[in-house]
């Protein structure tokens, strides 16, 4: 028997430690190019995770291995405890690719019908078309659809097997701001039912806005893994701003957790990795008031983490084709 009205939390409460995605020491080489250089990754059922990184970081290579489209050179990939291909045949995984993957001479409805016919468990064509917001163009030839409509069609095709894991590889490339927003609204709404969502993006704001967790890739390695807030703090720390008459920069720099400090009249700015400690100190040990804590934008965090100043000596992929 099953509980059909389960909330996402209840739904995953008894997953028995089974992970949606597990990567162990995964390497992928293309000839002498090392696209992925030892990635470990564990994603729990129900998480919405962004793989963020610049072009050539290994995002697509990683997703292709999770989807079983390519095999790791070494290391192990499992999805819901099975081989990716097995998970695909059971309809557990589906994906929205960046481009291609559509037949121009079929209609939108026929494309979904065709895809649905290949799975043992499937949802009705009408249902997935309406969830993707394209029920109005079911009879339109795919070749006549706009880029945004085609992307929604790919989304509809991905929903048709009612997958547990939805992988999206830079799904909004080439879409305008409004198209992107409504596309993500549809994904987000869908994920509320407890689906695991993994998406690759190089749009920082997209990762920040739509993911619960961000895995930052750079040159085929995971360089950061955490919530958007953690990522931002990790790279950039936070700035604690307060009104504190009579403070000196030397005194402020002495506060536990503080990195740098600046005094502007009565206003002090303390830059800190552990901003909580600094704030606690200021409020309990000094007369500071009007406390304000700000993080640097994720854009800056991203640049700080993926910048090339600590570039490894060799083996870094540089071709965009590997992104």
């Amino acid at each position: 028997m099953t509980i059909s009205s389960a909330t996402p939390e209840m739904r995953w409460s008894d997953a028995g430690g089974l992970q949606a995605i597990e990567l162990h020491a995964v390497h992928k080489h293309f000839g002498s190019v090392q696209a992925v250089r030892g990635v470990d990754m564990t994603i729990s059922p129900g998480e919405i995770v962004a793989i963020l990184g610049p072009n050539g970081a290994g995002k697509t290579t990683t997703i292709d291995m999770i989807l079983g489209l390519s095999q790791p050179t070494s290391g192990a990939v499992s999805v819901f405890g099975m081989q990716p291909r097995q998970a695909i045949t059971k309809g557990l995984i589906s994906a929205v690719m960046q481009t291609g993957g559509l037949l121009k001479d079929l209609t939108v409805g026929e494309t979904v019908e065709y895809t649905a016919s290949l799975f043992a468990r499937r949802q009705t064509v009408h249902d997935v078309l309406s969830r993707a917001g394209i029920e109005g163009i079911a009879d339109r030839r795919v070749g006549k659809c706009s880029g945004g409509e085609q992307q929604r069609l790919r989304f509809a095709m991905a929903l048709v097997s009612d997958p547990e894991l939805l992988a999206l590889d830079e799904p909004t490339t080439g879409m305008d701001v409004e198209g992107r927003r409504s596309f993500w609204a549809a994904i987000r709404k869908d994920a509320e039912q407890g689906r695991t969502v993994l998406f690759a993006t190089h749009y920082l704001e997209e990762a920040d806005a739509y993911a619960d967790r961000i895995i930052l890739l750079r040159h085929g390695l995971v360089v950061a893994d955490g919530t958007a807030a953690q990522i931002k703090a990790m790279a950039a720390g936070r700035t604690v701003r307060a009104t504190l008459p009579g403070a000196t920069e030397d005194m402020l720099r002495g506060i536990p957790g503080a990195d740098t400090a600046e005094v502007r009249g009565e206003t002090v700015l303390v830059h800190a990795t552990d901003s909580d400690a600094v704030a606690r100190y200021l409020l309990t040990n000094t007369a500071a008031r009007d406390l304000e804590i700000t993080a640097r934008g994720i854009e800056e965090a991203f640049l700080a983490l993926t910048g090339d100043e600590t570039e490894p000596a060799s083996g870094a992929p540089s071709t965009g084709a590997l992104s």
Binding site: T2, A6, L118
Partner: peptide
């Protein structure tokens, strides 16, 4: 009562 998740995984099968 099995969780919907593990029951769901078990119920999944490949097409004929």
């Amino acid at each position: 009562v099995p969780s919907t998740f593990t029951a769901d995984l078990k119920a999944r099968r490949a097409p004929a």
